[in-house]
């Protein structure tokens, strides 16, 4: 494993921990999109189908369990926890899941590396992950006051994607690594979705201002 991959995974882990910290400690999920969190739970559930049948490393299995466990527990907190769910901005978080899930599923049926159940599910999870942040970005744009933890959560998620691209470039040159169009293009699309957010994040950081996205 190279340094970019490890840094990417750790950034991903940090993003989840920041979100859990906010929800668990402050007992608030204000500004967090339940739609995005449910999409991530679906992404991990469909991607890690082989978690108990295909062993790669202890690190790999452990991280998969963390991402599965954290994404489902965040959804549980936002839907069921009696204090946390009160802070959920239901009226603002109106993005329709199905508009993302259905096209991703159809695309995975058509464009995949092999037409098998596991392979189609894996491809679906890649396409869905690429766009899963959209409800969250829409919610951020509607929320006039983005709190620090929510801003950091989205920043860390975007950072994780950017580091994965560096990881692929590194692997391409150092390993007998083939071109993985599906993984790379969906990963690139996903990272580009953060470009606008990054711009305003750095802008607010440089000027020491509160993060606000233009309406």
């Amino acid at each position: 494993m190279n340094i970019f991959r490890l840094a990417g995974d750790m950034t991903h882990l940090a993003s989840v921990l920041v979100l859990l910290l906010k929800i668990h400690t402050i007992k608030s999920c204000a500004g967090v999109s339940l739609k995005t969190q449910e999409l991530y739970a679906l992404v991990f559930a469909t991607r890690y189908l082989d978690i108990f049948t295909h062993f790669i490393s202890i690190y790999n299995t452990l991280m998969k369990l963390i991402f599965l466990g954290s994404s489902f527990s965040i959804v549980w907190y936002m839907r069921r926890h009696k204090i946390v769910r009160r802070s959920y901005d239901k009226e603002q978080d109106t993005f329709r899941h199905l508009f993302l899930i259905l096209p991703c599923f159809l695309l995975a049926l058509v464009i995949n590396e092999r037409f098998t159940f596991k392979e189609v599910m894996w491809t679906f999870s890649l396409y869905l992950e690429a766009v899963a942040i959209l409800p969250q970005l829409v919610l951020l744009q509607r929320t006039r006051n983005i709190d620090n933890l929510t801003g950091q959560y989205v920043f860390l998620l975007g950072g994780y994607r950017a580091l994965y691209i560096l990881n692929w470039i590194y692997r391409y040159f150092t390993e007998q690594h083939f071109v993985h169009w599906i993984t790379w293009i969906s990963g690139l699309v996903q990272t580009l979705l953060y470009a606008d957010f990054f711009y305003y994040y750095f802008h607010s950081w440089k000027n020491n201002e509160k993060l606000q996205l233009p309406a």
């Binding site: 991959r5 995974d9 991903h12 295909h54 790669i56 490393s57 790999n60 991280m63 998969k64 991402f67 590396e113 894996w122 994965y164 990881n167 692997r171 390993e175 690594h177 083939f178 993985h180 993984t183």
Partner: peptide
Amino acid sequence: DEQESVKDEL
């Protein structure tokens, strides 16, 4: 092989 190198990622 080719398949494995991507699936070892998260």
